[in-house]
Amino acid sequence: MRSKGLTTMRILKALAVAATVTLGGLTSPALAAGEAPPPPDTRFSFDGFFGTFDRGSLQRGFQVYKEVCSACHAMRQLSYRNLLDIGLTEEQVRALAAQFTVTDGPNDEGNMFERPARLSDRFRRPFANEQAARAANNGAYPPDLSVMVKARPNGADYLYALLTGYKDPPAGFQMQDGMNYNEWFPGHQIAMPNVLNDGQVDFADGTQATVSQMARDVTTFLAWAAEPELETRRQMGVKILIFLAILGGLVYATKRKVWADVKH
């Protein structure tokens, strides 16, 4: 019985190792020609299995998005009401939403009309459609940022690296017209110019608006926007795993008892 158990264990262990190696290989995307190296690991408040979003960073990040990114990038999955989750009060969010006008209608005369945004409205989009966005951006389409962190490998690290990765092209590097050199963008030529400069925004909490600070904060905000359920999910996960550990112990003890009088 002992040796049989050991064999089983050994087979399972071998399978587990094989699976880990293979799956690990699958998830690290291949590096083809013209691709950027994987971004360096940046420490964020939401890292690890128990990390949470730093509320101050989220609010500053939203400010960076609002004052800088939102000129070109939409976040169509988000509504103003979602901002209640980053630690703003209902008053604040209502006032914030009211700064934007959205199109509503048709009214009784059949016309569309403008009105201040409400909590239930989606974030205002900078362009009516993709064609308008391309026309205004030299043919490039500023992608929607709602789930950007989930849509790139190592999303948060990548975005932070990208925002802080603008450099002069190395000597001899052929740049196309209107493109910008970025260390971490695949192919190194990105249509988006460097938009973050020291002191670009005024943080209400007195935090110094350095480029790295703004990049960190807006990345945190985008990570939250992509996975607003992250904190709830991890909390629930801890509870459920504890429950399963106890249940597992009980079930295993019961199994031992049931099988105690049977040789096998």
Binding site: R234, G237, A245, L247, T254, K255, V258
Partner: peptide, 22 residues
């Protein structure tokens, strides 16, 4: 009961994936 042991172990792996690296 022996299947139940396996089921709980399976649920634990499943839950870990869902809650921590979905």
């Amino acid at each position: 009961i022996k299947d139940s042991v396996g089921i709980v172990a399976y649920l634990a792996v499943f839950a870990f994936l869902v809650f921590f690296m979905p």
